[in-house]
Design a protein around this nucleic acid. Sequence first.
RNA 1: GCGGUCUUAGCUCAACUGGCAGAGCACCGGAAUGUGACUCCGGGGGUUACCGGUUCAAGCCCGGUAGAUCGCCCCA
Length: 422
Amino acid sequence: MSQKYAAVKGMNDLLPPDIAVWQHVERTARKTLLRYGFHEIRTPIVEDTALFVRSVGEGTDIVGKEMYTFDDKGGRSITLRPEGTASAARAYIEHAMHQKEAVTRWFYMGPMFRYERMKTGRYRQFYQLGVEAYGVAEPAQDVEVMECVMHWLQELGLKDVKLQVNSLGDETCRPAFAARVKEYFEAHREQLSPDALETLSKNPLRLFDSKEEALKPLIAKAPILFDSLDDASRNHFTEVTRQLSMLGVPYELNPRLVRGLDYYTRTVFEFIAADPVLGTASAVGGGGRYDNLISELGGPKTPAVGFAMGLDRLALLLNGRSDALQHRPDLFLVSVDAAAHDEVMRLARSLRHQGLAVEFDARAGSVKSQMKRADKSRAMYALVLGEKELAEQKGNLKPMREELPAREVQLEDLARVLKGLG
RNA sequence: GCGGUCUUAGCUCAACUGGCAGAGCACCGGAAUGUGACUCCGGGGGUUACCGGUUCAAGCCCGGUAGAUCGCCCCA
């Protein structure tokens, strides 16, 4: 099974019938997000490397070791986007959106790239759908964004996804808390693995995220961020949770929830699915508020909140439902001879123009082989055309999906009958 | 970046301690000649991931490479 060419490691082809689940996820997202007044944007897949370094953060793993970076022929360093928020923020600033409207609500979907070791639900080219809401500092915006995701997940029939929320505070209270956390873990250095020590020196809050069993008791006794929030951040967070409750959106407080990107302020949240098909990749999405990102990238001071969902992981969760989502042609036409095949082509063209999904086998061949093809196509009905049918202009419409008797129809009535039958 | 397991037909997998590489599914064709899916018969498909080594003989043993998969780090 030696192949001359294969897809690049960590990057996968998506083929039928699996693609049906993806289309379902995307279709449902577009429909739901539009109801909330979010509008789709498409940005380039590459950006200046500096944009990601600046926004995602110098000390993060993404920037430190996971970016696909290369020089183009003009000597510019460009990078395949590892996430979507930086590109959207750049577009927001570049197009001076703040001068055009007070509030901007965008969503995007598409491939992202990170050079990582693969495992279930994690690929080097993966797909995210993200939402960004700019211009609103009020907690209601955080809440609307979270509620919107829960709504979308519900439309997809994913009931077992939990929303976890936390507040990271902001630039006035977080540094002091980070220092307390560092101090706490420093005092227990001897219990830390080399990996953990590394994290401690780079970004102590991220220790909360560790999956090392040995660390768990230590994490459990660590200082709680909520106790260190200043009044503004505490009030913001309290209001976020009050409004979530008020709307009946189920959520859990997770005081250990931190996120891997540097730009988050105050509210952060994650969507967690317990389904074993995800392995240890239990987070299907996450997001938060990033009130400083736009100004850090050179734009005006603009509050913002957003999230990104991992579409690969949603697709994994929905794989069991692939069958019901497959396309079914309304009709498969079968010809007995050359004259009938001409009529099949004419009839197919006519019915397709009337909005019906109609297929036939361009190779013709035996009636039997065409019928097999009809079965494979998953068509609802098959119709065989031969000398008799052409002469009488009528034929037997045969149900393929269930055991029912065929029904005689005039060829000119086909479209009406098929639409009536559903 | 670190560690474990694995790689045989398009897919899922067989092949006793090294001894002629197989099955099911799928695909194609046929079974009174114009009706699928069920049944029966037949057919095409493989340098056993790749490179090298040991041996009279390697799918099987040894080394390397690539890929897949699981855990850690980290993340969607």
